[in-house]
Design a binder for these strands. Structure first.
Length: 854
RNA sequence: GCGGGUGUGGCGGAAUGGUAGACGCGAGGGUCUCAAACACCCUUUCCGCAAGGAGUGUCGGUUCGACUCCGACCACCCGCACCA
């Protein structure tokens, strides 16, 4: 080996050096430059949990590859970073360890920023903010007031999880098996008056606009489509018999009015006004309803719970058959939030209704049969797709064969003509409840005045800052029991009044941060010129777990910002392209506390299945998404200090395709480091070479180089970073074995550095400089592949016999089909297989394959 | 329970309906070395000495040809509106 003894790849020195150089040149500062096209790359900003983990490294490296690649393509790039800093963990930490959520949060941010910076991400740190900065949430309060005035905010009652021992509202994740996570008390459903955003005003628009999001994954659009849940159905009222006063009618909504003649019962939600009315005077009803309210507030809990009903004794008349009286049940699986909170049951064609009917001995008359069968329903409901043709026995037009869809429309038309209800379009999407009875969130800028009622704060008084003097030694919302903070003046009449103590859902914070990044220090939520230039986000990158809520709320919020004048009309769909990366998974380690509840432990605190500190054995739960609450997070800091940031970046981008989950393993990090060290050594060797005389090997190397440019470029464009890396490996193999002249190898090495720069920017920068590249590789234009160098003269055509590969032939790339056929038929394997017969069929796919069918 | 997704060697994975296993890891063999590390070369889907055969979660279908498209099933993952 000719390399000098001191020549060694030392990332620590290289990385610090180039990060300093980038900072000095302000390479990553986003500049509004009307002369250049802009590109806005955004990764979902992190929650400051305390330390970065491999999921962050993977997520932010992906964005960085895109940002650096686009910069090389000549775009003016905006690539910012901030912190989704409000939320429960800060309050939990305050309760567990003492201290203040603010100190905990800002402390975590400082640590994580320090951990992130050595990664060498091309971020414009001058735009950084945290959502818990008063400068940020004050602007959010201003928008809340604007939205209130625009009719997009209102108050109504909604149910929450109530812990009767701790006297506090619980989040769904704090309810475990129906019990409070701290107190262990049975959780109750309780109604509170809460603030709501009118996202339902936009149901139809949010649904229709999904079609325009062509650069979003189809699965995300489908999930949102189903979540919004448009349905067409019939709404009508049953008239009641023996019902309490004011309940002479029960409104129901059904998507299957074609089954109205197969109805055998009516059921209402336990939260339905009728149930509430009966509950007041009937102990049995009260007991049943109370029982229903023990089921959690989640749809999942409701769906999984055993289906139960209570016969109220009330009857309704069938709208088309006065003789027929149907029982009215209160049923635990009916949602008050959907439709009218009341349904009719057609057991023959709905499994849940059938189970219910069988349980309570109700009939289940068939409405239609399959075309080829006429067996009455017994234990399995007959629920064919609505597009399938079936034979109606109890349709509105007698015995008729039609699809469910046709029958539904016909039924609606018939019912309307008879004056029984009307066809309506409904959505599953519910309004967005934003009230949280918690401290660490954006205060809702509202004042409750005895004379004026509910009054928005004056904008001049914003931001309404959270008070610092709070304690977390007792459960509940510290704002609610604060002695002075709640006292304020009514902005309307000047009388003394009480401040709203609810804070905002943290989803509000993350619904507009992308817009704030365009002018993070502005005295208004956004600045028109900046928003006009930078919006929309050209590429948004984040986890699939945000497919519905965060992304749907952001889409709504952008529209609300358009309506209130904070964003241009063109920004109502804020994310032009979306990429959902897979999650980084890891095993979970738990022990139990004295009450049997799970305590989670960090991987770094566990060794050989035992806690390092106490030796207590831990339970190992199979890999799951890395999450701060489960503490199954891996610390990348160790990898970076041992091998450098480029190794960490290279490793997380290689192997797994970015959209798929990856299980963290330390095995590959060493290998990634060795590879980068080999590349560095190769560059040293090439740098020492003489220029030399051109040879045929030069042409081969240049062909390989242009192929690499074309392949890597395409792979990065397609978000196939693992393939880009595989192609870089292949080019490395070619280059390191090349016998081309020094001049050619130097050229190839410089291009190699450019191609790997998005993934390993520090190493690329070092090689670029060593090979005499001009300026910084971070600012060099992306290389272009010469199409002439990609053309191949001869190709290998595989020959299949009956679809199985049996042979191959070398042919000129542009050989005529007839010639290929002749050559194929002359091939030994083909001659042997044909045994003198003619082939049944001969398929030649030019440039791809030949298939001989015998 | 409902909605969405994923499934390919020992491992991560590659493959516009056209040579299944690119590239990497690991493993085995070799060169170099006093030795080790590093580096380099070769082998590596399975069965078989070979010829050959089988093979992309399972079962079926469409096609000249299926990892790819369709249907059913199994397993795992994500979401289910107060985790972020």
């Amino acid at each position: 080996m000719s390399s000098p003894t001191d020549a060694r790849y030392s990332p620590q020195a290289i990385e610090a050096k180039w990060q300093t150089a980038w900072d000095a040149a302000e390479v990553f500062k986003a500049r509004r430059d009307p002369a250049r096209p802009k590109y806005y790359v955004l990764e979902m900003f992190p929650y400051p949990s305390g330390r970065i983990h491999m999921g962050h490294v993977r997520n932010y490296t992906m964005g960085d590859v895109v940002a650096r690649y686009k910069a090389a393509q000549g775009f003016s790039v905006l690539h910012p970073m901030g912190w989704d800093a409000f939320g429960m963990p800060a309050e939990n930490a305050a309760m567990e360890q003492g201290g203040h959520p603010k100190d905990w949060t800002y402390g975590n941010i400082a640590v994580m920023r320090d951990q992130m910076k050595p990664l060498g991400l091309s971020i414009d740190w001058s735009r950084e903010f945290a959502t818990c900065d008063p400068e940020y949430y004050g602007q959010q309060q201003a928008m809340f007031i604007d939205m209130l005035e625009a009719g997009l905010v209102y108050r109504k009652n909604a149910v929450v999880n109530w812990d009767p021992v701790d006297m506090t509202v619980l989040a769904n994740e704090q309810v475990i098996d129906g019990k409070g996570w701290r107190s262990g008390a049975e959780v109750e459903r309780r109604e509170l008056t809460q603030w709501f955003f009118k996202i339902s005003d936009y149901s139809e628009e949010l649904l229709e606009a999904l079609d325009g999001l062509e650069n979003w994954p189809e699965k995300v659009r489908l999930m949102q489509r189903n979540w919004i849940g448009q349905s067409r159905g019939l709404q009508f009222a049953f008239s009641t018999i023996d019902a309490p006063e004011g309940f002479d009618r029960i409104e129901v909504y059904t998507t299957r009015p074609d089954t109205l003649l197969g109805v055998s019962f009516v059921a209402v939600s336990p939260d339905h006004p009728l149930a509430k009315q009966l509950e007041r005077h009937d102990a049995e009803v009260a007991a049943f309803v109370a029982d229903c309210r023990k089921i959690g507030t989640t749809e999942e809990a409701l769906e999984k719970a055993e289906k139960k009903g209570f016969d109220t004794g009330i009857r309704v008349r069938h709208p088309f058959n006065n003789e027929l009286e149907l029982p009215v049940y209160i049923a635990n699986f009916i949602l008050m939030d959907y439709g009218t909170g009341a349904i009719f049951g057609c057991p023959a064609h709905d499994q849940r209704d059938l189970d219910f009917a069988r349980k309570y001995g109700l009939p289940h008359p068939d409405v239609f049969f399959a075309l080829d069968k006429d067996e009455p329903v017994e234990t399995l409901a007959f629920v064919p797709p609505k597009t399938e043709r079936v034979r109606y026995l109890r349709g509105f037009a007698g015995e008729e064969i039609q699809t469910g869809e046709q029958a539904v429309e016909a039924a609606i038309a018939f019912c309307e003509s008879q004056g029984v209800g009307h066809g309506v379009t409904k959505y599953r999407l519910r309004d967005w409840g934003l009230s949280r009875q918690r401290y660490w969130g954006c205060p809702i800028p509202i004042v409750h005045c005895e004379t004026c009622g509910v009054v928005p704060e004056a904008k001049a008084n914003l931001p309404i800052c959270l008070p610092d003097d709070v304690s977390f030694d007792q459960p509940g919302n510290p704002l609610d029991r604060h002695p002075t903070w709640t006292r304020c003046t009514c902005p309307k009449c000047g009388a003394s009044a009480r401040r709203e103590t609810d804070t905002m859902d943290t989803f509000v914070d993350s619904s507009w941060y992308y817009a704030r990044f365009t002018s993070p220090r502005a005295p208004t939520p956004t600045e028109r010129e900046e928003a006009d230039y930078w919006m929309n986000v050209d590429q948004y990158i984040g986890g699939i777990e945000h497919a519905i809520l965060h992304l749907l709320y952001s889409r709504f919020f952008a529209r609300a910002m358009v309506k209130t004048g904070h964003l241009p009309e063109s920004a109502k769909e804020p994310f032009d392209a979306l990429f959902t990366q897979g999650m980084v998974t890891h095993e979970i380690y738990t022990t139990r506390d004295d009450k049997g509840r799970a305590i989670y432990h960090l991987p770094e605190d566990v060794e050989d299945g035992k806690l390092k500190a106490t030796g207590e054995p831990v339970r190992i739960i199979p890999s799951a998404k890395m999450s701060k609450s489960k503490k199954n997070v891996v610390d990348p800091v160790n990898i970076i200090s041992a091998y450098g940031a480029d190794t960490a970046r290279w490793f997380v981008m290689s192997d797994s395709p970015p959209e798929r989950d990856v299980e963290w393993t330390s095995a590959g990090a060493e290998a990634a480091f060795k590879h980068l060290a080999r590349v560095w050594a190769l560059s040293e060797r090439i740098a020492e070479m003489e220029e030399g005389a051109p040879s045929e090997a030069d042409t081969d190397l240049m062909r390989a180089m242009h192929t690499a440019i074309a392949d890597v470029t395409k792979s990065i464009e397609n978000f196939a970073f693992n393939k880009a890396i595989a192609e870089l490996y292949a080019f490395n193999n070619t280059l390191s074995r090349s016998t081309a002249s020094g001049a050619a190898q130097k050229t190839a090495m410089r291009v190699f550095a450019q191609l790997m720069a998005p993934m390993v920017p520090h190493l690329a920068e070092d090689i670029w400089a060593r090979q005499g590249g001009a300026g910084l590789v971070a600012q060099a234009p992306w290389p272009k592949a010469d199409p002439a160098m990609l053309v191949q003269d001869t190709i290998t055509l595989p020959i299949q016999i009956n679809g199985k590969r049996r042979s191959e032939i070398e042919v000129p790339a542009d050989l005529a089909k007839e010639e290929v056929e002749k050559l194929a038929l002359a091939d030994d394997a083909v001659v042997r297989a044909l045994e003198g017969r003619a082939p049944k069929k001969l398929i030649v796919v030019p440039g791809r394959i030949v298939n001989v069918v015998i």
